[in-house]
């Protein structure tokens, strides 16, 4: 990525807040969510303070759907200056809190909360970033990134959606940053690695705002000069479609590239029937080697 060397004129930040009530830190103490949300809002406002042309979106990811918490669609809320606070900051805080309450109220009562569908929220974030780029003047250099703040664990159920989102982000030079509040997230870590973003699992929730400000506030071009957490080792083994287990050797359907852990005569994804006689023989390449 050549152009993240040059500092940008404006940067777009999309924050995805996982508000799923089944995250461990919320089930242990529901009040912590408010604390985390305050940290995220303070972080969002610090981003807006960096440059006057910076853009912001906050997306709430609940178990039944995801929704924009900021900006609110249509007319913005009417806010007056409160004790000398910059109006925009008040607007962000008020809008996020009000819309979050509405999002939580809209959750179906009879349903048990399932997995947080972060891939959908990421897709929304990418659409928002494209819109900002379309509407800006072509001369403006815009850097864009998406930050996910989550205490959920990740499973292979959203695998394909995640991969499509990661590769789109990579193509459009959008960094994906992940701040994990609880467990190690190997799929999302792959997303950080593919897009060049940062992955951090915070050791304690008390210092959340500090971690956010130190690690995730600098934009791509500024990060090279800072000492930030390293990439670490990313696990790139493929998961089989039949059991979603990680493999070092697997069988891949030549038609659709589905991965299976053992040989089977028919592909369960595309229903292709394979020739009997086991997997295709592989002839090693004839190549003289001098060792």
């Amino acid at each position: 990525m050549a152009d993240d060397e040059i500092p940008s004129d404006s940067s777009t930040l999309v924050i995805i807040v996982d508000t799923n009530p089944n995250q461990r830190y919320i089930t242990e103490d529901p009040k912590i969510l408010t604390g985390c949300l305050d940290a995220v809002i303070a972080f969002a406002n610090s981003h807006l303070m960096q440059k006057s042309r910076n853009e912001l979106a906050v997306i709430g990811c609940h178990f039944h759907k995801s929704e924009y918490l900021y900006p609110s669609p249509g007319k913005p809320l009417d806010v007056r200056q409160i004790d000398g606070q910059y109006e925009l900051f008040t607007l962000v805080e008020k809008t996020v809190k009000m819309r979050l309450v509405n999002l939580i109220k809209s959750q179906p009562q009879e349903e048990k909360p399932g997995e947080s569908l972060l891939a959908g929220a990421l897709a929304m974030g990418l659409c928002f970033i494209s819109k900002v780029r379309r509407e800006a003047s072509p001369a403006l250099k815009i850097s864009s990134r998406i930050l996910i703040v989550t205490g959920s664990s990740d499973t292979a159920a959203q695998y394909i959606n995640y991969m499509n989102v990661f590769f789109t982000a990579q193509k459009q030079q959008v960094l994906i940053d992940v701040c994990s509040l609880d467990k190690h997230l190997s799929l999302l870590q792959q997303g950080c690695d593919i897009t060049g973003g940062l992955y951090l699992k915070v050791p304690t929730l008390e210092g959340l705002l500090q971690y956010l400000l130190w690690v995730f506030l600098p934009e791509g071009s500024e990060r090279k000069q800072l000492v930030l957490p390293g990439r670490g080792r990313v696990d790139y083994r493929a998961a089989c479609f039949c059991h979603r287990e990680l493999l070092t050797i697997g069988y891949v359907c030549s038609v659709c590239l589905s991965v299976f852990c053992k040989f089977s005569p028919i592909c369960t994804t595309c229903h292709t029937v394979f020739k009997i006689g086991g997997p295709l023989p592989i002839k090693p390449k004839k190549k003289k080697m001098k060792v």
């Binding site: 995801s66 891939a119 959908g120």
Partner: peptide, 25 residues
């Protein structure tokens, strides 16, 4: 953008009943 690059419907991908596109095993 969704049909040419993203290949994920943001609405479907954030609904518990619609997000899965893998064959259910």
């Amino acid at each position: 953008m969704i049909s040419s690059t993203l290949h994920v419907c943001p609405g479907c991908a954030s609904r518990p009943h619609l997000y899965q596109r893998l064959p259910d095993t």
